[in-house]
Design a protein around this nucleic acid. Sequence first.
DNA 1: GTAATCCTTGACGCCGACGTCAAGGCAACG
DNA 2: CGTTGCCTTGACGTCGGCGTCAAGGATTAC
Lengths: 142, 142
Amino acid sequence: MRIGELAARAGTTTRALRYYESRGLLPARRDVHGHRTYDERDLKLLTQIRTLRDFGFDLEETRPFVECLRAGHPEGDSCPASLAVYRRKLDELDVLIGELRAVRARVGTQLARAERARNELAVEALLPGGPEPRCELGGQEQ
Amino acid sequence: MRIGELAARAGTTTRALRYYESRGLLPARRDVHGHRTYDERDLKLLTQIRTLRDFGFDLEETRPFVECLRAGHPEGDSCPASLAVYRRKLDELDVLIGELRAVRARVGTQLARAERARNELAVEALLPGGPEPRCELGGQEQ
DNA sequence: GTAATCCTTGACGCCGACGTCAAGGCAACG
DNA sequence: CGTTGCCTTGACGTCGGCGTCAAGGATTAC
């Protein structure tokens, strides 16, 4: 099959395939017209690449999986190098998730504090009982 | 103070400050030589920007906070627009964290599966005793 | 005088993974 | 014969947030 069909079958674009080839990740044979030619095995390699990309793997991180498949193994993750990438990615994810949760907690705290401050101001504004001269809080909402 | 001192006091670079100015986020007065001049209030604005950036906020997302401070409010998050950014960021974080946890789970599952497959192969290789024909698990390693 | 240190503007570089456009080739269809 | 549709290579654009370099002006220290 040619590049357009492979791209369509894998749910990607011809541009991506040419890019992968330029990176040495998915080389193509050429037919008599100089057109790139692919077979079902290339589809499998490409599917492996796309699956990992969808998981957020960098393109370079898919290389061990692709080479593993090309070496004849039944799955891209049948090789130690692929497992190492899995483990490294798990560690990265754990770190990242931890950081994001910490940020989420801090932002949540800030939001709660800011909302509380606003509510206190609103309550004071509603109290007609002689409010002690509240400093310089003018022009809240423009 | 001039740009170098402000940058140092805020723990950032002169390049970043000029960039913020080019974005209209942190305009500067100029002294007689055309040099940028800042005061303590600018330091406060810049500190707000850097804090939010450290939390992963886009530069544009810091704008409501900066404008809130510049409008004379005591905190950058004293204004509704800032609270809206907080809330949107919390939602984004929740979505992102959820996606990352899903990916983490799937990668973890894949790793476990791949390791199990390798262990089974290793055990089979170690067993010299006539292994019963293991269903259709042929040609694992070539 | 001159070296060091600060500042100015302008412009290009970077990172990844492609998108998009240009100019052209070759085949099949009507 | 022209049109459509696929393909080719090459090259520039995108995004954000700056880093880095170039060329020059000004002040202060020695």
